[in-house]
């Protein structure tokens, strides 16, 4: 599936073993978006000419030349990617940091908002941060994905016993309020 972080287009995919990967959304061959590709086992194949990329991003098969071993130099751009507590985390730059723990919470809904991540954080009276803990009764927590200057996606989590529909409505309401505010 496609994603966007700080203006970069990302292809996020899950191999058959369950492992998730985040790559630049561009096939090195002719620039086709890799997020339109298809997964075969632990490889991602580009939908245009079927070039296959292994879990490390290296091209390991070119269908037009089935007997050729592709040169090592052909590879997709890869980013660090991890999955924890219902959330997929991506780092555009190499990092040693662990992704934040959201243990005990359950993912409810992801909603894209027409506002910068900073604006969403300040709406909730917080400094911009990957995680906004809102201290509500249901422990609603937002993992914020900055997409570009005018968009972000809020991934909402809450206590497992919270009513999903309530949390989801609450999030939609917040979005209306935020989008109604002058930036």
């Amino acid at each position: 599936m496609p994603g966007r972080i700080d203006g970069q287009d990302i292809a996020i995919w899950r191999g058959a073993s369950g492992q998730v990967h985040a790559w630049g959304d561009r096939c090195p061959h002719r620039g086709m978006r890799l997020s339109h590709g298809f997964v075969r086992g632990e490889t991602l194949a580009c939908i245009y000419h079927g070039w296959q990329y292994d879990a490390d991003g290296g091209c390991d098969h070119i269908p037009a030349h089935p007997n050729l071993v592709p040169p090592k130099t052909i590879c997709a751009t890869t980013y660090s990617c991890a999955e924890s507590d219902d959330v997929i985390w991506v780092a555009l730059r190499p990092t040693d940091e662990k992704c934040p723990s959201l243990a005990g919470l359950r993912g409810v809904r992801s909603l894209t908002i027409d506002a910068a991540a900073e604006q969403v954080a300040s709406h909730f009276g917080q400094a911009v941060n990957a995680i906004l803990r809102l201290g509500t009764a249901d422990n609603i927590t937002l993992a914020l994905q900055p997409m570009d200057a005018d968009h972000c996606t809020a991934h909402a989590l809450s206590d497992a016993r919270a009513d999903r529909t309530d949390v989801s409505r609450w999030l939609e309401h917040q979005r209306r309020v935020i989008e109604g505010q002058p930036a």
């Binding site: 287009d9 090195p28 061959h29 620039g31 086709m32 978006r33 070119i62 037009a64 030349h65």
Partner: peptide, 20 residues
Amino acid sequence: ENQIPRKLPLDPGMEVPTQA
């Protein structure tokens, strides 16, 4: 409609061609 960049790169380096 889903190739990046939209324009056709004329200089080699940005895309990788093969014999095909």
